[in-house]
Design a protein around this nucleic acid. Structure first.
Lengths: 211, 211
DNA sequence: TGTAAAAATGACTTATAGTCATTTAATTTA
DNA sequence: TAAATTAAATGACTATAAGTCATTTTTACA
């Protein structure tokens, strides 16, 4: 029964073609200023067909986000590999983010947009979301690093691992968010993205009060 | 010539009536699920009139945000007053945020939504935005505390004040954002909002690596 | 009380996400 | 292989809601 398999493959391909088209359109004009008709035209399909493969415009957006998240994920895994301590690995995660924001700026912007929106009421399939959290979300990597750091003594052991993980992750998200869409702060404070990132890594390690 | 003044007062009142109505509608159903027609009906005005007082739906949303920001601002000022060091005052700012999120949850949610959106392309008047940044935004209070803390020795002096300010502010925003709209993290990690806040204050002071 | 200016109205325009009855293509069956 | 069944694709259509503007109503004032 090779037909069912071929059909499945073709369906997957069509899905990816639609995502390719949507990426082209969305990244060029911005998602909010792009229409489903434009995506359909770029994909050389009718609009109705888009809705056979995706539940909604937001569903497409989330699928593109997942592509970016997968890239980020593998970058993190790779950059971490040679490092020893949990602390070193956590720092490398931060640096990977910076690299990602430079080399994949479209994906990065979308990543931050999705992460900073209320994920509870995204109009997307539950499965897609569950899949992301379990397999692509960087927070699971952060968690592993924190656990390791607590083990190897490079991270404080007097704070519960879950508290530390979610706090470090949240702080980092805040930093990325500001870098991504609060350019006015840079103007007002006359600082650069790199300053804020460096300072964040410093404070997350050593705190802001004198030793 | 008391007439011009009365007219001005009436205009201001009308504006506030519209905001009252919009708050009622928006906070009840959620902004995205509320229509301008509903706001008009609640305000007992026609839709066209709304647009004589506000540029757009987003402009109304931003004006409501400003109301909340003004409340938050005065709470911060008040709670800070009796405290001595910059460090103590910074901590009190964090606690005020928590209090605000509990006692003014609708304003808080909107505050986070606006702060975490890309403020550059909000469809609002430049003046409204400038006014906010200059007079209501909590970041200016943070900055004063940081400066004071550096002076009085309760905050590290080896990091430029502007870097420290924007970093601490960004971290706090990230924490608030996650608390506000990443409930799934709480489920997955089995933690509470209070845990993450407490941990954040601890790390922002003393860092995450062992002393 | 007549007129000019200001404020308010709501029917209308515009824009776009999402639907669904219909058509076209592929696959199975007799 | 022709007919029948199933799957895929279409695009005109619907629904919704933001924002506009010619017209009407109200107010100010001579």
């Amino acid at each position: 029964m090779g037909i069912t398999e071929r059909k499945e493959r073709e369906k997957e391909n069509r899905r990816n073609e639609i995502l390719d088209a949507a990426e082209k359109v969305f990244f060029k004009k911005g998602i909010d200023f792009s229409t489903m008709d434009e995506v359909a035209e770029q994909a050389e399909l009718s609009k109705g067909t888009l809705y056979l493969y995706f539940k909604s415009k937001e569903d497409i957006r989330f699928a593109i986000f997942q592509r970016g998240a997968a890239i980020l994920n593998s970058l993190m895994q790779k950059n971490m590999r040679t490092l020893q301590t949990g602390k070193e690995r956590l720092i490398s995660l931060g640096e990977t983010f910076i690299m990602f924001s430079r080399n994949f700026s479209d994906y990065f912007r979308l990543f931050i947009e999705i992460q900073t929106s209320n994920m509870e009421n995204l109009n997307i399939g539950k499965e897609a979301f569950e899949d992301y959290v379990r397999h692509q979300s960087p927070i699971s990597i952060v968690q592993r690093c924190v656990m390791q750091g607590i083990q190897d003594g490079s991270i404080r052991r007097d704070i519960p691992e879950s508290h530390l993980t979610s706090t470090l992750w949240s702080q980092m998200l805040g930093i990325l968010m500001v870098i991504n869409n609060h350019e006015h702060l840079f103007r007002i404070f006359e600082i650069e993205a790199a300053d804020i990132l460096r300072t964040h890594l410093e404070i997350a390690q050593h705190g802001s009060i004198p030793r």
